[in-house]
Nucleic acid binder design. Sequence first.
DNA 1: GTGAAAGCGCTAACAC
DNA 2: GTGTTAGCGCTTTCAC
Lengths: 341, 341
Amino acid sequence: MAKKEIVTIKDVAREAGVSVATASRALGGYGYVSKEAKSRVLEAARKLGYNHNLVAKSLRTRKTYTLGYLLPDIANPFYAGIARGIQDVAFEQGYSVIICNNDNDITKTERFLKMFIRNRVEGIIYSAPFNQALKEMAETAIANGIPVVNCYGSTRVAALDTVTGDAEGGCYKAVRHLLELGHRKIGFLKVRGSGISKRRFAGCKRALEEAGVEIFPELVVEVSDYSQASGYLGAKMLFARKELPTAVFAFSEQLAIGVLKAARENSISIPERLSLIGVDDVIGEVLEPPLTSVKIPTYEAGKAAATLLLERIEKQIEENSREVVLEEKLIVRESTKAPER
Amino acid sequence: MAKKEIVTIKDVAREAGVSVATASRALGGYGYVSKEAKSRVLEAARKLGYNHNLVAKSLRTRKTYTLGYLLPDIANPFYAGIARGIQDVAFEQGYSVIICNNDNDITKTERFLKMFIRNRVEGIIYSAPFNQALKEMAETAIANGIPVVNCYGSTRVAALDTVTGDAEGGCYKAVRHLLELGHRKIGFLKVRGSGISKRRFAGCKRALEEAGVEIFPELVVEVSDYSQASGYLGAKMLFARKELPTAVFAFSEQLAIGVLKAARENSISIPERLSLIGVDDVIGEVLEPPLTSVKIPTYEAGKAAATLLLERIEKQIEENSREVVLEEKLIVRESTKAPER
DNA sequence: GTGAAAGCGCTAACAC
DNA sequence: GTGTTAGCGCTTTCAC
């Protein structure tokens, strides 16, 4: 792997018999260059195997065409979907993106922020839940002139451009669906201290109240996080109540999978004896039964976030903090049906 | 967002009352600097809010500490697992990684390669299936002195460092398991033209031959890709045979899910009337029934690939092409049981 | 130990 | 339209 001599713009210029300035203009495709000179330069570049050095260009122009994306874990399909959306619009506009998994850890968050700044990323998107380092990160970035966009991440940070879903509306639809099927005793699995869980529940309440249907406080259980294990635990608690609900609405897909497992263990068949709805809809389709759920449009969210960010970078945006709210659709599958009587 | 003045090493030097050379040495932590000068510099940097400019540093040192990772789609959990592994070891050693989704598309592959080279990534990992552009990409990169590592990607390219799983061994175990349960008529779902599919089948054959069990050619169906749809199709074909197999081994999880669906439609209960084994094991656990499968250690593969690559970058490696073969374990769950008689 | 100065590869005034 | 030249911010001889 003998590193062959790197050919620079100088070499190209010499080969083409022009100055570096002309070569630069020809290669960059701007400024005044005669057709003739341009084609000679391009030909020379091809011949020598020239590769534009973006490091040098960045240093000179102060544009790195690089974005940073901070998320908890790329192996989580929810975030991977967002990442894909971000990358697609970024690449389309000539930007590359550096993805960092913070595992919701403070130290990592700090380290990655520092890395972002040192690498001179031109903007940052985050999808992480709140922690102190995240907040400081956003503030530091802004202070350094690097715009930050929040995409389905914690809202407990500075006023930023934000992309979220209409959690309230999505859940409203889900409960309406249950109501229309005839359910009157609905259990809920929400997450303690989660802002989005709160908004989801608000949507549920609205649907219930509109229909004049009672909320059973003992059927509303709060768990500590959105994991499968928590769903399992929550379901077990629910199943221990005097009276079983006829439907359960779990505020994440993992929670719903936990419910599924618990139900199987207790021989509670879904949807016959219990209807079940989840949120996210990453693998809902392949579950058994296929899960009715509120779909979070992760890919679209990523696209929206990147669009917001690139606008900030390339244009002068006057508004202080913009917000994109994406519709969350209800996907009806086989885990919900009318309750037995 | 008034971009505040960027503080450079010059500012730090002035503030600390030393030359830029000394400041650079102090900040970089190498060369001779007196303790006293060093602490003054560090203090000045802190005070001014100095951020090391890696773009400038890269230009000067020709080290960008950046890696490129080319995969079909980050939203596919299989690749996301690899990506996570790569990132973890990369970040640990101070490298960041740019991830590009080629969707197995030639144009995109070319574009991303060009981007990699222009950004002066120091190494490339790919997990993509073969296409002509990929092959050229690898060759061009190598020619430019950029090492390339193949991680569960096409082997039909130049002799490179490679990470794969012991596909043969994993499948051997799977078939042994079936055999031990008492299965004698086993169906296979493999993919036409896939090198890895061939290796998988070789492992199956070995187990069968060792046990002196016949292979039924009409129960070996070849489909066009690893998708769910193909699994569904393949299963339908299998179910149309004169005699049903008592077990099916599908060479991907998506294929297995397709089989699951087809079986459900035909009221063939799994595992009672048909045992099923898949490969990958990304969501196998939450399927119904939980899927017995050959687990591909994606995270470990990513780590191994990054390790191989960083060794190439940082050390002098004499060997031409190294290979890491990861063990593929069989995870026994509930989709397999003894055949009814 | 420290500083002066050259230069990484490129762009962008500015002069011609 | 084209060339000269001065940096972008940093590291790194080399002399002191």
